[in-house]
Design a binder for these strands. Structure first.
Lengths: 230, 230
DNA sequence: GTACAGATCATTGTCAACAATAAAGTCGAC
DNA sequence: GTCGACTTTATTGTTGACAATGATCTGTAC
């Protein structure tokens, strides 16, 4: 990874580190199969090795990295089967949540979503990828939290995170990004209008392009068969 | 908790400890709101405090315990809303999995399920509650793993674990246990017959009694309103 | 007798040193 | 030159000691 001096990290909590690493993985700054060495990361973030350790364990339970005893952690390599399966669960959960969101949606929720959407769009225009990542995450979190079932919302969040490895391959695509942002705006409009049918349809369709882009990329890169190797 | 001498634990891995604690929680040996003190547990299991620490963090991410900084961990207290929400997700996931299980089911899967079911039944007759717990878990795990989507199966496992706090209140009820065991046998029969309709129906209905028993118990104990307090 | 301040105790959080393991490199034999 | 055993190095795993925090108890003033 070759990082020289410590980045200043406001908080040294494992959660914060884990989030930063998630971001690095999602943005493709750390690639699948890349090793994550505890001491290196400790140096980079300027924290104790135990904090890193904890963060890596967290990432393991999320499913973003794999760890082998005495061998260390590496970014997980998702096969096309994995991606298809993960997205199948995402579709199931997110459809359900979209069906549960109360219509008309409380105005403060709509207001918050509009605000996030706007900032997301601005970050995209400015090319601030880290912020794009965070605001996209926040939009989805806020949107699905509105379903009223926190446990369902958690599960959705969980699977969105899992999918981030897949998204790393396609995160640079400006066309996909533009489309995603437009669809966010559209979803908010459906909330306001109380259009359940279109809301559910779009919530489900919204995540498909990044899945297909991943599958396409993978196919081109490694051939048709899913030579998993893990 | 009042435990005097160390129980011999074969392996000292955090995962093993976490499983043991899950069991204790599910069987009602540790009650909601009860504090889990690291050093006590370390003594009890005869392992280092760090191992306990890790196990408690794992249980936190599962959702069985809550932890507050510098205050420690306690078994989570599920409100009726929590239980209803958790079971709603379980229904969603388990229905989907039941729809995906290939029919006819591979004979080795059926054979494994029959074996587990039989041992489960025997453990119930013998009053071996710990084994009943484990074999019940194993049955469900094996059953849903057959759906072919490991990520879906994981999520199901995850939510089944979350629900274990709720089950602790009703785990002693022999009628519920008897019914559960009979239904397991029935599910296997449907697999063999290739009866999708009944399979899905039963898979969904199967978990409802323990939910309703919990809600009923909670209502009787604390009154109709869900005075959460947590 | 009640409320506040201080002291004491119980408990968790952090760290740095050491042990254990796996990988890489080196040497010698054939 | 290549295979295998040995040595060295890189990396993770484990432990115990100490620091920090929050809870509890005690005593005193009013």
């Amino acid at each position: 990874m070759a990082v020289a001096k410590a980045e200043t990290v406001i908080e040294a909590e494992p959660r914060t580190i884990a989030n930063r690493l998630e971001e690095d993985i999602a943005l493709g700054r750390i690639l699948p199969r890349e090793r994550l060495i505890e001491e290196e990361l400790a140096l980079r973030f300027g924290v104790n090795r135990h904090v890193i350790r904890q963060a890596l364990m967290d990432l393991e339970t999320i499913g973003l990295v794999t760890r082998q005893k005495n061998k260390g952690a590496m970014v997980r390599d998702l096969t096309p089967e994995d991606v298809i399966n993960i997205y199948a669960v995402r579709e199931l959960l997110e459809r359900k949540a979209a069906e549960l969101i109360p219509l008309p949606t409380p105005p403060e929720v709509v207001a918050r979503l509009k605000d996030i959407q706007q900032r997301h769009s601005q970050a995209a225009d400015a090319g601030e990828f880290a912020n794009v990542f965070r605001l996209n995450l926040l939009f989805h979190k806020t949107f699905f939290a509105a379903c009223g079932n926190p446990h369902l919302a958690d599960a959705i969040q969980h699977f969105a995170l899992k999918a981030h490895i897949a998204r790393s391959l396609t995160v640079g695509d400006p066309k996909l990004l533009k489309r995603a942002i437009e669809e966010h705006a559209e979803m908010v409009r459906y909330l306001e209008r109380g259009d359940r049918t279109n809301l559910v349809r779009l919530a489900v369709e919204h995540i498909i392009p990044s899945r297909d882009a991943y599958l396409e990329t993978y196919r081109r890169r490694f051939g048709k068969a899913a030579s998993a190797s893990g």
